[in-house]
């Protein structure tokens, strides 16, 4: 039977796989995309630590009989905002590096074969 847990777990797994692959690329932009994907995966993972619940938002009301765990949500909310801040800084660092060196290889001039593409 397809369960939500399975869907979420595979989502986290797929996002992480893609993120890790992109993180290892040699150019800055794919690495940034990898970080963005990894942020999704991490946020969903953290969120899932409160387990999955439907129709029970943590909004106090007289009608509600149960609530989902609000704590991971609060943590993930700030995590989302902070990962935006982090992404923004990294994007700009990559941009500055590109403007300074005219090359967007993650290793900059330390690698002799920087113009040979994606390789190490």
């Amino acid at each position: 039977m397809l369960t939500m847990e399975l869907l979420v777990a595979t989502t986290i797994g797929t996002l992480t796989t893609a993120a890790i692959y992109l993180l290892q690329r040699a150019r800055t932009f794919p690495v940034i995309l990898g970080l963005a994907l990894l942020s999704y995966a991490t946020n969903v993972f953290l969120f899932a630590m409160g387990r999955l619940t439907i129709n029970a938002p943590p909004l106090i009301s007289a009608d509600a009989s149960r609530y989902t765990d609000p704590l991971p949500q609060a943590l993930v909310l700030t995590a989302i905002v902070i990962s935006f801040g982090m992404t923004a800084v990294i994007v700009v660092m990559a941009l500055r590096a590109w403007l300074e060196s005219g090359n967007d290889h993650v290793d900059l001039e330390s690698q002799p074969n920087i113009d040979e593409g994606d390789g190490e």
Partner: peptide
């Protein structure tokens, strides 16, 4: 993004990515 020069780093990337992804999932 220019194409990767060699296949080996890409294969290493795939292996690590699959391992990490499956582990986290």
């Amino acid at each position: 993004t220019p194409r990767a020069a060699s296949i080996l780093p890409r294969m290493r990337g795939v292996v690590l990515a699959l391992g990490g992804g499956i582990g986290v999932g």
